[in-house]
Design a protein around this nucleic acid. Structure first.
Length: 304
DNA sequence: AAAAAAGGCAACCGCGATTGC
DNA sequence: CGCAATCGCGGTTGCCTTTTT
C-alpha cells in the first residue's frame, strides 16, 4: 500500500469512526415532515453548506450527507417536481449520448432537475426500453434507435405541441393499414409516398388532430402487428424525412454544443412551447414501443 | 379479492476529489 | 506539503405503489 492509499484508508477509517460515534441515535430512511421543516428553517436562517455541523446544529439526528441529499434533491425551492417534459426528455437523450452517465453534468442543463431524478428517469424509462428491445442500452443499435427514431419523434411532438396539434405520423399505422385508402387519399390526409412504397407523414402542409385524438389512431399492439407484417413503415425514412424537415432544430446543433450558450436553439424551442408535462406523450406508450420494435427489425435485417 | 410481480423513486453507500487548516 | 474533514458523484438498495395474474 502506497502512502496515498494509506492516507485514504486512514481518512476513511476516521470518517467511519465519526459516523459510528454518531450512529448512537442516528436516524435513517425516509424523512418526516418535522425533519424537513427543521432543515428548511435552519438553512433559511443560516444558509447551506458544512453539512455535518449543520446537521448537528440544526438538531437533526441525521448525517450531514443525508441532510445535503435531502436538501438538494427535494427541499430546495428551485427543485422542479412532476413529469419530465418532452423537451427535457429530448435533452436528456442527447446529452447522455454525448456524456454518458455524467448525471450531474446533464442536470446542469435542466434547471430544477436533479441528477438523481435524471438518473432515475434514465434507468426506469430508457433502460426499460432497451431491455424490451433486447439490446444493450450502450449498444450502437440502441443509440441508433434513439438518434434516428426516438429523438426525431420527440422533436416532432414538441413542434406539434407548440402549434397546439400533433403529427399525423402517430396515425400512420392506422391509415397505412387500410388497403382501401389509395395514394390520393393518403396525400389528401397529409401523407406522402416515397419510391420504396413506404408511407411517411407530410408535416409541411397537413392539418393535424389534437393530442386528445391520438387514441383514435388505434395504437394498439394489434394494429402494430398488422403494420409490421405488411412492412409498410420505414422508420429510418420516416425519421430522416423528419430530420430533413427540421434541420434548424437538430442538424449540427447538438454536435457542436459545448456549453450553455450553445443551447440557444433549445431555449428557442422551449420558448414557443407551453411547458406542460404530458405523460401521455412520454416515450413508453404502446405505439412508440411498436415503432421502436419496427426500427429494431430494420436493424436486425441489416438494412440500416 | 388477494397475491405476486413490476415499476418508480427517495435515500443510502463507497469512493475519489476538493478544501482548508 | 500533509492530513483530516467535507463535498459531490455515480451506483445501488429498499420500500411503497401500481399493475398484473
Amino acid at each position: 500500500m502506497d502512502d496515498k492509499a494509506r492516507s485514504l484508508k486512514i481518512n476513511k477509517n476516521m470518517e467511519d469512526f465519526a459516523n459510528v460515534e454518531e450512529e448512537i441515535d442516528l436516524r435513517r430512511g425516509p424523512w418526516t415532515i418535522e425533519e424537513d421543516f427543521e432543515l428548511i428553517n435552519y438553512i433559511a436562517t443560516h444558509g447551506e453548506g458544512r453539512w455535518n455541523s449543520l446537521a448537528r446544529c440544526a438538531g437533526l439526528k441525521r448525517t450531514g450527507k443525508s441532510c445535503r441529499l435531502r436538501w438538494l434533491n427535494y427541499l430546495r425551492p428551485d427543485v422542479r417536481r412532476g413529469n419530465i417534459t418532452l423537451e427535457e426528455q429530448l435533452l436528456i437523450l442527447e446529452l447522455h449520448s454525448r456524456w454518458g452517465n455524467r448525471w450531474s453534468k446533464i442536470a446542469q442543463y435542466l434547471p430544477g432537475r436533479t441528477d438523481n431524478e435524471i438518473k432515475n428517469y434514465w434507468r426506469t424509462r430508457v433502460q426499460k426500453h432497451a431491455k424490451q428491445l433486447k439490446c444493450d442500452v450502450n449498444s450502437q443499435q440502441f443509440k441508433d434507435t434513439m438518434k434516428y427514431l426516438w429523438m426525431p419523434r420527440l422533436v416532432e411532438r414538441i413542434q406539434a405541441a407548440s402549434t397546439g396539434s400533433v403529427s399525423t405520423s402517430s396515425c400512420v399505422t392506422n391509415y397505412s393499414d387500410q388497403s382501401l385508402i389509395n395514394n390520393n387519399t393518403m396525400e389528401h390526409l397529409g401523407f406522402i409516398s416515397n419510391p420504396n412504397g413506404y408511407i411517411t407523414p407530410d408535416n409541411s402542409n397537413v392539418a393535424v388532430s389534437p393530442a386528445s385524438d391520438l387514441t383514435d389512431c388505434h395504437m394498439s399492439s394489434e394494429v402494430g402487428k398488422i403494420g409490421q407484417d405488411q412492412n409498410l413503415v420505414d422508420p429510418q425514412i420516416s425519421s430522416q424525412n423528419y430530420l430533413d424537415n427540421n434541420s434548424g432544430l437538430l442538424n449540427g446543433d447538438f454536435t457542436k454544443m459545448q456549453d450553455q450558450s450553445d443551447l440557444n436553439w433549445f431555449e428557442n424551442v422551449n420558448g414557443m412551447i407551453p411547458n406542460y408535462s404530458d405523460s401521455f406523450w412520454n416515450i413508453g406508450n404502446d405505439e412508440d414501443f411498436w415503432l421502436l420494435q419496427q426500427h429494431q427489425q430494420v436493424l436486425d435485417n441489416g438494412s440500416f
